[in-house]
């Protein structure tokens, strides 16, 4: 009876790489989505007109 453990480990290893890779892709996309949602909530003005940045204001003569 041949041993062939190498083929068995190759099959299990390849399956693990594919399945873990897919899981990591899902986790990464979820994190990206959360980051984007966080950025958007920080960027949104609370109310009224957005304030200008201090360095863009001209000094009073």
């Amino acid at each position: 009876m041949p041993d062939n453990w190498g083929f068995v480990l190759a099959a299990y290893g390849l399956a693990a790489v594919v399945l873990i890779g897919y899981w990591r892709m899902l986790v990464r996309r979820e994190r990206d989505l959360e980051d984007r949602a966080g950025e958007r909530s920080h960027a949104a003005p609370i109310s009224g007109h957005p304030r200008s940045k201090p360095d863009s204001r001209t000094s009073i003569q």
Binding site: M1, P2, D3, N4, W5, F7, V8, A11, Y12
Partner: peptide, 24 residues
Amino acid sequence: LVAGLGLAPPEVTQGNVQRIMYLH
């Protein structure tokens, strides 16, 4: 993984390579 690679015996004609069945 334990059941397929450890507990299950090697198949009579194919030997250990038949363990791929538990994945395939």
